[in-house]
């Protein structure tokens, strides 16, 4: 009897998630994905559900600064992580350079894949700046340093994010512009690189 009760109790937990710098404590069904916790429990609907299977990238968020699909992450496993969603990437009213570039260059159409594309792009730009190679990087030796973030590099690195409307050309332009903005800022202010990292 006691064992049965314990098993019944064990299907949910009270967890605390740190999202966009703010702590949220909530009971969750253990089956609840981070994506559903965000969308259905915390009303953070900016993170989109496109396939719920890790195949489209629409639910991309940043976990400890790295891009991750929220549909393949159970909410209970996200405790203790820094979760950044699309709602948390702007600096107050000032858009993140990636958001600004998507807006100005029309890096979307229907907008449903957009939060995922933007979070992925933020992750991509940081991964590139940190020297991570991609499948199309010619020289992957660490001493070669980061390759130029060419259109080909951006396309390769962003390929986990589908856009069925086919806004790819302007998305790539937006990511390139935002990466340039970051690089210009880093050049102008030598310790900005460190501050971001």
């Amino acid at each position: 009897m006691r064992k049965k009760q314990l098993m019944a109790l064990s299907t949910s937990s009270v967890i605390t998630l740190k999202i966009n710098g703010e702590k949220h404590t909530l009971p969750v069904d253990h089956r609840t994905t981070l994506l559903d916790a965000l969308r259905e429990r915390l009303d953070l609907t900016g993170t989109k559900k496109g396939c719920d299977q890790g195949q489209c990238g629409a639910c991309t968020v940043l976990l400890d600064g790295r891009r991750s699909v929220a549909c393949l992450q159970l909410a209970v496993t996200a405790e203790g992580r820094e979760i950044t969603t699309i709602e948390g990437v702007a600096d107050g009213e000032r858009l993140h350079p990636v958001q600004q570039a998507f807006l100005e260059l029309d890096g979307y159409q229907c907008g449903y894949c957009t939060p995922g594309q933007i979070c992925a792009a933020i992750g991509v730009i940081e991964e590139h700046a940190a020297g991570w190679p991609s499948a199309v990087t010619e020289d992957v030796r660490p001493e070669a340093g980061p390759p130029d973030l060419t259109a080909e590099e951006i396309r390769e690195r962003m390929s986990g994010n589908l856009c069925r409307c086919g806004a790819y050309v302007s998305i790539v332009e937006a990511v390139a512009r935002a990466a340039q903005t970051r690089q210009d800022a880093a050049t102008a202010l030598p310790d900005a690189e460190e501050a971001v990292a």
């Binding site: 900016g46 702007a90 858009l95 600004q100 807006l103 029309d106 907008g111």
Partner: peptide
Amino acid sequence: HTRIEGRDKVTGAARYAAEVP
């Protein structure tokens, strides 16, 4: 012209059908 609802789309504020509480 950039989209009227562009800011809502890039900030996640635009609510789609399954997102209205």
